[in-house]
């Protein structure tokens, strides 16, 4: 096994464990808390503002002061961020559909994966449905699956 592959797997595991821990400690895994945060016109619980605040306070300086100055990652792999800068309907509609699902149940992908060990069929149902949704989206993006009202995706541009 090459050194870069070892780094990828080891760092993948460590950062996954840290990510899951962050989701549990921050309260993002609690749908009541998520809905309380989104309920700005009701009994608003601003706690989850601090989650994004804490995450950005750590990530942003490391990205701009360290990562951005490097040509490749420490493993030698290229950075995989997208160079796409177009704001199109696919991006915005995707975000709107995601937001609707997030507001409906209070789960988003990260907290859901971190909650798999919780032993409820609720989370398993969510994760399985989410996988189905991802497959449908991949099929739609490849022009192989029609959506209600929209039909097949037109194969032009992005």
């Amino acid at each position: 096994m090459s050194k870069s592959k070892k780094i990828r797997i080891l760092i993948g595991f460590i950062s996954g464990a840290l990510f899951g821990a962050g989701m549990i400690i921050s309260g993002m895994v609690d749908p009541t808390k998520v809905i309380g945060f989104l309920n700005v016109t009701g009994d608003w619980d601003p706690s989850l503002m601090f989650v994004m605040g804490g995450a950005l306070a750590v990530f942003t300086p490391i990205y701009h002061l360290v990562i951005k100055k490097r040509k490749t990652a420490i493993s030698g792999d290229a950075f995989t961020w997208t160079t796409n800068t177009t704001i199109d309907g696919t991006l915005i509609w995707g975000a709107i559909i995601f937001g609707a699902g997030w507001g409906l149940a209070g789960f988003c992908p990260g907290p859901a994966i971190a909650s798999i060990g919780g032993g409820t069929n609720i989370i398993l149902a969510f994760v399985l449905s989410m996988l189905v949704g991802i497959v449908h989206a991949n099929q739609y993006l490849a022009g192989r699956f029609p959506l209600p009202f929209v039909g097949y995706r037109k194969q032009c541009g992005s």
Binding site: T82, G99, G101, C108, A125, F126, A137
Partner: peptide
Amino acid sequence: VSFAGLLVGFGTRLGNGCT
């Protein structure tokens, strides 16, 4: 929750990302 899961999976792939 299952319906929400479908929306979250579909929307995050279409919009290329989540929270």
